[in-house]
Design a protein around this nucleic acid. Structure first.
Length: 552
RNA sequence: AGACCCAUGGUGUAAUUGGCAACACAGCAGAUUUUGGUUCUGUAAUUCUAGGUUCGAGUCCUAGUGGGUCUACCA
């Protein structure tokens, strides 16, 4: 593929493992989402990493739903997650697993710990357990229930499972070290009572394992060789390893990397949820959201997201990626695959004075200059056209290449024009531009010898289709809305992040566009057909603008 | 201020593991262009600080500084 052969630290670890002959059967990774929300670009980084690694080296990646908290999880999320992963272009084949499928094994693991004197049932309430936890620089105190007999613990745990106790009345704790400088080792809770139906196991269970007693064990059950997670789990690793060691199960290895942050947006599920709940966005799949579903509606291609995730790299230091890198990746891909079309977003009438009344001709136009196989289409041309309001200036600066009195300009795929005049209404608003055309300057057969500095896009007034365009901008007004802990990030919400433009003039072929089909609107940017219409009119979402090196 | 982790141009990520600090994005300048797009060329800008080891340190050691994570019956 590319010539750069630089490896990230995880690849280095894997290569060294492989060199030692550790995994003759190949490596195994997993992508372990909790089905309690939608996937975002940060998850995409993890998906691309996990699946990418097993594609590059030999191996397999499991999809595992980490569903140990029935309170927040649902099959609706399971479905959306599966859809997003597939859309990104990854296939977990038959390896679709659920932590809830391991509940029996996990229960056995817990009893094994109890029998080994390494876990105990604690009758203390939440507050007591919290206060006994101690503080960062100071040891905790041991629970009075810490030294119950194995028999009593077994009996109590069995009855917790049987549903004999109320929620919150008892927990199972690992017996480790209340004085450990690592808070996670101070007798962590590993099972809690929850009388609540689970999306897969129904009401079969009254107790559910905690993350620390489910994730690592599931990795082990699946014989995951490299369990990749984000930095905040670094402090959990000693516990992860302790449990594997005491249980004597497959030694999966946890490796942490820095999560993805993007400027001008937020990445946490909780904060994204807040935007939805406050009605600041239309939903999880709003095109402004950094969710996979939002980006899909925005028109980002799977290939561009994958390319982006590969370019950001994998390391352990906190990072904030420039939105411009994402936009670059999107343009890079769309430039190659998006058919060109013409659409006038802010139309003003252009009259070609010397073009015969009633005449029309159909001009050939290539669909994509970057791809000959994309073919061409025909564009209707006539005496009255629409051009972009901003493409005319009465008194232009020297570097303005567009229409102005007395100036020439090329109409893309058509003729060269000479601007002869314009009209404004009483409020000074431009209502019409007038010009003459050079009949022998037609694109492809230009023998006029006239040169024009600029080229404009246009749409024939008579043939134009009407449409609606949704313009999008960054979600927040500042690069790092979370940087100042004294300011609520919602205060930085960009009220102008969504703008609806009506009365857009579209070239006729655009009415046949497929839902989510990407286009480049010439000189404007990349757009996709929205999945829904607006009063019967086609709607297009702006994905990203074209790079614009014309600064005034 | 207990433990753990991190520190390389504006932003990210590399550096054959101790041997001339590079790649991408962004910026700037120019060429090409029937999209002010694409493409191409050029350009500026980098090893947190102080010691130490070494012929040689971005890399190893010590201390400091700065930042992150951790005290949920969430994951």
């Amino acid at each position: 593929m590319s010539s750069k052969e630089s490896k990230n630290f995880i690849e280095l670890i894997i290569e060294s493992d492989l060199a030692e002959g550790k995994f003759p059967e190949g490596i195994k990774t997993r992508f372990p989402p909790e089905p309690n929300g939608y996937l975002h670009i940060g998850h995409a980084k993890s998906i691309v990493l996990n699946f990418g690694l097993t594609q590059k080296y030999k191996g397999t990646t499991n999809l595992r739903f980490d569903d140990t908290n029935p309170e927040t999880e649902s099959t609706e999320y399971v479905e959306s997650i599966k859809r997003d992963i597939k859309w990104l272009g990854y296939d977990w084949e038959e390896r679709e697993y659920y932590t809830s499928d391991y509940f029996d094994q996990l229960y056995d693991f817990a009893t094994k710990l109890i029998r080994g004197g390494l876990a105990y049932v604690d009758d203390s309430n939440t507050e007591t357990i919290q206060s006994q936890k101690g503080a960062v620089g100071q040891a905790g105190t041991e629970s009075p229930y810490r030294n119950r007999s194995v028999e009593e613990n077994l009996d109590l745990f069995e009855r917790m499972k049987a549903g004999e106790f109320q929620e919150g009345s008892r927990v199972l704790r690992a017996k480790i070290d209340m004085a450990s400088p690592n808070m996670h080792m101070r007798d962590p809770v590993i099972y809690r009572i929850k009388r609540m139906p689970h999306h897969r196991t129904g009401s079969r269970w009254n107790i559910y394992p905690m993350y620390d007693f489910a994730h690592g064990q599931s990795d082990s059950i699946e014989e995951i060789t490299h369990s990749l997670c984000t930095l905040e789990f670094e402090n959990h690793r000693p516990l992860y390893n302790w449990l594997i060691e005491k249980l004597g199960i497959y030694p999966s290895r946890q490796i942490e990397f820095a999560r993805l942050n993007l400027n001008y947006t937020v990445m946490s599920k909780r904060k994204l949820l807040l935007l939805v709940q406050k009605g600041l966005v239309s939903g999880w799949d709003d095109p402004r959201m950094p969710t996979i579903s939002g980006m899909r509606n925005r028109g980002y291609s799977p290939a561009s997201i994958r390319a982006f995730c590969e370019r950001v790299g994998i390391a352990k230091r906190d990072n904030v990626i420039d939105m411009s890198l994402l936009e670059f990746c999107v343009r890079e891909d769309l430039n190659k695959i998006a058919d060109r079309r013409m659409a006038v977003l802010d139309p003003v009438k252009l009259i070609i004075e010397n073009y015969p009344e009633g005449q029309e001709e159909w001009l050939p136009a290539e669909n994509n200059p970057e791809d000959d196989s994309a073919g061409s289409r025909e564009l209707p041309f006539s005496k009255e056209l629409y051009i972009e309001r901003e493409d005319f200036m009465e008194d232009p600066p020297k570097k303005f290449f567009r229409l102005a009195p007395g100036r020439n300009v090329r109409l893309k795929h058509a003729y060269i024009l000479h601007c002869t005049g314009f009209e404004r209404d009483e409020k000074g608003r431009l209502t019409e531009v007038r010009a003459t055309y050079y009949p022998d300057s037609r694109s492809g057969s230009d023998i006029s010898g006239i040169k024009a500095k600029g080229t404009l896009h246009w749409v024939s007034a008579k043939h134009a289709a009407e449409g609606v365009v949704h313009m999008y901008d960054r979600l927040f007004k500042v690069p790092e809305p979370l940087a100042d802990k004294n300011v609520d990030f919602l205060e930085y919400f960009n009220e102008e992040s969504h703008r609806i433009i009506k009365g857009v003039k579209l070239e006729p072929s655009l009415t046949e566009a497929q839902s989510l089909q990407p286009f480049q609107f010439l000189r404007k940017g990349y757009f996709v057909r929205n999945t829904i219409e607006h009063n019967g009119l086609p709607v297009f979402n702006m994905t990203v603008g074209l790079r614009d090196s014309w600064k005034k």
